[in-house]
């Protein structure tokens, strides 16, 4: 079942067409990556999903239908432009924002305190928001998105500006949420984290969908006909290989057209002068694919 269906939406601002034609669906309980270069139309798409902007064309179904007050309460949102009431005490600020989502004050206070403990912010709960560091504010903002226990969590750049310890913490929480059946839409520029967390993705560029599907499939689609080999000895002459590149103790073998990795593996297994320790089809990283697609689109 789909938690979100975006169907051929478009949005213009005066002469600028921010989103031309975007369609994708997010399945319940998955971590879904919404990717794209700066200015591609991601934030506009998110704002249309959240009903902050009305699409000029197309339709959006969130949690089984159009946006309603009830649906709004089931969505958690971490916007790219972070914002909290700077002059309020941290705990009061969290409680107020949870209250806006319909969480009773006592319950909100209890949940907020638990999250503050987990995010190592408990000792700052009585400090005013403007007295907190940027990283702390970022974590507090993340707590705001979670406090009302939403079914759909939309997080825009959740890792920006965080140290590795906190990146790990956010990753952990996102995984827990997904394991608990929550749907997560993750928009981030740290491709290695996206690759690690998300199962499926959509990439938008210039207001259109340029890549869509399971990340593994997208990577396979972009894979050059190459294999990575690690081992000891002399590789010798490999008939189906056009070039060998050596990188950090491993060899990347570019295959001739029509040659398959299986053929190479067979040839290597017959070579008594080389011991294979690792053999894998060379898949490009999401980062490489992102750069390649973004650049191709710009040409």
């Amino acid at each position: 079942m789909e938690t979100l269906i975006v169907d051929h939406v478009a949005k213009s601002f005066a002469a600028t067409q921010a989103v031309k034609d975007v369609s994708f669906a997010v399945e319940a309980g998955e971590i879904f990556a919404l990717l794209g270069p700066n200015g591609a139309g991601k934030t506009t798409t998110i704002r249309m999903v959240l009903d902050l902007l009305k699409p000029d064309r197309g339709s959006i179904s969130v949690l089984g239908g159009p946006m309603s007050a009830e649906t709004r309460d089931r969505i958690g949102y971490l916007p790219e432009d972070r914002g909290l009431y700077r002059k309020l005490k941290l705990l009061d600020c969290l409680v107020f924002l949870a209250g806006l989502k319909g969480v009773a004050s006592g319950e909100a206070r209890q949940r907020a305190q638990a999250y503050l403990e987990r995010f190592d912010l408990a000792e700052h709960s009585q400090k005013k928001v403007n007295e907190l560091s940027r990283g702390m504010q970022q974590k507090a903002q993340f707590i705001v998105a979670l406090l009302h226990d939403p079914d759909l969590l939309i997080v825009d750049e959740p890792f920006a500006g965080l140290d590795p310890v906190n990146v790990r913490l956010i990753k952990e929480v996102l995984r827990e949420q997904a394991a608990a059946g929550k749907t997560i839409i993750l928009s981030a520029h740290e491709m290695y984290l996206v690759q690690e967390l998300a199962r499926r993705m959509v990439m938008i560029n210039h207001g259109r969908v340029v890549l869509y599907g399971p990340i593994a499939e997208v990577r396979r689609k972009f894979a050059a006909n190459a294999v990575i080999v690690e081992g000891h000895g002399d590789l010798g002459t490999l008939p189906d290989v056009t070039s060998v590149q050596r990188q950090n103790g491993r060899a990347v073998l570019q295959l001739k057209e029509g040659a398959s990795p299986q053929q190479i593996l067979r040839t290597l297994s017959r070579n008594d002068h080389f011991t294979v320790e690792r053999f894998e089809v060379a898949l490009p990283s999401l980062d490489d694919i992102f750069v390649q697609v973004a650049q191709e689109e710009d040409v």
């Binding site: 709004r72 949102y77 972070r82 914002g83 909290l84 009431y85 700077r86 924002l97 806006l100 989502k101």
Partner: peptide, 16 residues
């Protein structure tokens, strides 16, 4: 103030 401190975007995703 809500526009300046960017709380507006959070608030309007909670209430209309």
């Amino acid at each position: 103030e809500e526009k300046e401190n960017r709380t507006m975007e959070i608030v309007v995703t909670s209430v209309n």
